[in-house]
Design a protein around this nucleic acid. Sequence first.
DNA 1: TTGAAAGCGCTAACAC
DNA 2: GTGTTAGCGCTTTCAA
Lengths: 331, 331
Amino acid sequence: MREVAERSGTSLKTVSRVVNAEDGVSLELIERVKEAIDELGYRPNLSAGALRRNDGKTQTIGLLVENISNPFSSALHRAIEEVARSRGVVVFAGSLDEDPQRERELTEAFAARRVDGLIVVPAGNDQSYLATEREAGTALLFIDRPPHGLIGDTVLSTNRDGAYQATQHLISHGHKRIAYIGDYATIHTGAERLAGYKKAIKEANIPVKENYILQGFHTSEEARVALRGLLTSSDAPTAVFASQNLVTLGAIRALRDLELSHSVALVGFDDISEADLLDPPVTLVTQDVAAMGERAAELLFARLDGDDSDYLHIEIETTLTARGSGEILPR
Amino acid sequence: MREVAERSGTSLKTVSRVVNAEDGVSLELIERVKEAIDELGYRPNLSAGALRRNDGKTQTIGLLVENISNPFSSALHRAIEEVARSRGVVVFAGSLDEDPQRERELTEAFAARRVDGLIVVPAGNDQSYLATEREAGTALLFIDRPPHGLIGDTVLSTNRDGAYQATQHLISHGHKRIAYIGDYATIHTGAERLAGYKKAIKEANIPVKENYILQGFHTSEEARVALRGLLTSSDAPTAVFASQNLVTLGAIRALRDLELSHSVALVGFDDISEADLLDPPVTLVTQDVAAMGERAAELLFARLDGDDSDYLHIEIETTLTARGSGEILPR
DNA sequence: TTGAAAGCGCTAACAC
DNA sequence: GTGTTAGCGCTTTCAA
């Protein structure tokens, strides 16, 4: 910057004004400064500026998701990026892999780089440590799961309701023996979806059978093996509600293994790509991931703009799309 | 930091030593400083440090991909993140949407935040502007597509060879009327894959028919419509090579529309999820995306560590997996 | 083993 | 309109 000032025969402050498009600089000087910038290949250092600037903003946010490569996380990322881009903000992203320690490490790494805000899918069951970041002025937003040990803005799907609808859908097609198969029971979304399942079952005066509730699977293969076991037992269900995308894929494979794809009904939660191309096409309850990301980013930026109203808890509606697998009738 | 120094009754430099785990500080002082850090909720400011540090490194890299939410990009991102994490480096990521202007904007945005390196899937056909960043000490690595107007380390798939193998696979099953359907012809990977297709066709002494070459589709739907047109023409092919994942999905849908899934052979390039669950299962040539990302990140970090040997051009092998759709014989 | 002073690149505050 | 000076949070250099 000093070199640019020298070359254009002016001062640091004038260069700063030109770089930041402040007015009060003559057209001629602007021209000279811009020339010098091009000739020298000067790139402003935003971090250095943030150090001195009054608001201290780095125009940077951090995103902590389960796994940046899974479709849910990356769709979220993309939606957030879109809003951030419109404000000249760039996005750090990292995967937590359900590891609370990793959550803290990444938070620290982002904090050390002075992100203005953090959008977090909590992995651990204690986010109280984030109070320190909040005090330092970092805006916080929780998405997909609520935080523990701290309150803050939260954007969730209507998990319980979506699962309730899915289960009701199966009940309305005459099923009474409906299995639930899900992810780790400790994950908020899993617990909510199980609650929705139970609510629908109870409302239909069907007894909740514990052997119909399979939980703790984080890979498609685990779910496949477990469901195959239940389907070959003497007390096999006539319908299955799979509460997460990997689990749904496992369920589809289990039904194929046993040639039950067309005789046992299946409704899944979460999107799976090409659900319409499978045989039978898969009936799914899907989250509006783009809307979640967009609302989350907008709310975060509103906070950064000074909105200090009460914390908001936003719920984004899920949608059931009937495609075939969920409309199979009990034998 | 000043507050920490005051509270622990020592100086800035000692706090700096403790924060950076430098030795030459008495155990007792380390203890006192750490206590003060916890009590005050102090977070070191890495950017401020980078400003003064000799190497100027921010422990940050930038990733520019086509679309952060597509499976190829996000798998790349994840593989890079993994390597970065092991070095305490965090990753900025952004989508270019095939927009050269966006490429320049994001590059500038990352440069303004002083990333140590940039991993780029070039969108435009001129990367010469990156010479400025390189001069400023930013390491550059190109992935998936080579740069133009500048040379540098590059990690690519064996696109031409993979397409050659895919086409040969169809030829070896007796096909002579093989259509090619692909993405924008201007994208490097598309051009390479078309070249591989043509090479295999020519080697088999089959004339290359221009009406069998469909290009310029960037969505599944566009590809579907175009292929449906060709398949219903009087000169319909008996096999199709789809050179990209979205295009492959469009091709699958076109074949379904016409009930040709089991009579026209199909080999796709790129992974599509659940290829094994479709009917027929889809024969695909897949890229080793994880290996691409890993090699790319490792090479970038080697450069940051001072490796100044000649630029490397790495090719990662593709793999053909026969699953059914590619083994259908011509009628 | 510890600390004082200078300065990284930039903007704020204020003077001219 | 334009420039000067101080200082953001940190590391370097060098002295004690």
